[in-house]
Design a protein around this nucleic acid. Sequence first.
DNA 1: GCAAAAGTGTTCGGTATACACCCATGC
DNA 2: GCATGGGTGTATACCGAACACTTTTGC
Lengths: 247, 247
Amino acid sequence: MTAPAAGRPEGYDPYAFEPFAVTVDLAVFTVRDERLHVLLVERGQEPFRGAWALPGGFVLPQESAEQAARRELAEETGLLPRTVAGLHLEQLRTYSDPDRDPRMRVVSVAYTALVPDLPEPRGGGDAARARWTPYGTDGPLAFDHERILADAHERIGAKLEYTCLATAFCPPEFTLGELRQVYETVWGVALDRPNFRRKVLTTPGFVEAVEGPPRRTGGRGKPAALYRAGAASALHPPLLRPEGRSS
Amino acid sequence: MTAPAAGRPEGYDPYAFEPFAVTVDLAVFTVRDERLHVLLVERGQEPFRGAWALPGGFVLPQESAEQAARRELAEETGLLPRTVAGLHLEQLRTYSDPDRDPRMRVVSVAYTALVPDLPEPRGGGDAARARWTPYGTDGPLAFDHERILADAHERIGAKLEYTCLATAFCPPEFTLGELRQVYETVWGVALDRPNFRRKVLTTPGFVEAVEGPPRRTGGRGKPAALYRAGAASALHPPLLRPEGRSS
DNA sequence: GCAAAAGTGTTCGGTATACACCCATGC
DNA sequence: GCATGGGTGTATACCGAACACTTTTGC
């Protein structure tokens, strides 16, 4: 039920309670140099001044949490708004521990974004600095952001199993080797190349071949065919992790 | 990032912005008479006076959203607090559309609860009335609760595939027929009994046999052995829906 | 006996897995 | 040539779907 709950006085005074602030936090992942990276910003103010944290900020009075997340993402990364509008953004969960911010009551809606390898983020914006950090090498983060980041990592690992989400890590046109890299990097396991190829190509709507000059290379070796993300969003049947632990 | 965002003034005034209210909404499901039921309450105040809605209410200044959800659930159903403390409660997602409540800015954290068949809820508590309603026969609900309910149904359907969640719908001791009923009711499909039995029994930690007098019956037919929920929380491999659509 | 639900067994086909092998490129 | 990665083929094992059959109860 939305405010006011049945049984509460009719003319509920919005200022009667200690106010809640509502923020968004973003766990933005990318794959770089065969490693999973996270976008972090350095805090310019107390508390946690100088500490690294997830990008994010206040939800403004006239925007939804998702709109706030896209706005903050654009501000922090320097991406064009129309690029951000097309990114895969997923609500992770909401963190509402009463003591998670030392100053006041802050409820934060966390989002996860998966992006292809992007240019280095501008140091400007809302944060003192911003950078891509290899996942696992991030020191202690501000607030409860360590926990949010861990939850986000677990979520995307599970989502790769039964959705087409992996293509969100890739540029518009990609090789099957690059797509396999995504799975291997996020899961931290090696996959059998021939079987991975068959699995992806036989799943309707996962990827579609690009007609043009069907070649390109990441380094040496045989040039690979190019593919685009397909129309499907779910994988049936799922692509399970070898020693699958999920959700 | 939590408030205030880096770059905002140091001494952020909690009252500077139009305040947000934070509520919880609960989609409580049970299986009754081989049908999926939802717990609804009748609103006693405007707006939507007389309309049915999901139970829920305000998050208090010193409690987390989950604590608020358990408190509201106990109030609405009349369950003992220690019973509610053991129930499976899962955060669904947060709804933050600026116009979702006509009076003020309300951000609501939705939870899903799966409960065994419970006694009729007391009409008292915060709501004018409360009742179990067969899923799908609920008229238009207040606010955006129709959408929340649909999201919740989709979520639990998907969760049954790869978690042991179905046991949460069952009493402490149950037959495999009752467990199968849960799947058939939530998914709306018929499952092959022998195959379902094998699948459940060969999944380590899903259920464990009860030693005692291994019989009991729901009506006529051969008495069935009793089982308890096991220690596992995830299913490997998953138990996929016949014409599986997921997530 | 008959209906209904539990429980066991067996067949069949698809899919995943683990390989072996060839192809095309850079050096 | 050789290393590297792309792409194809194939044999085996496993798992799920389908279904026949027996058992135990209520009526």
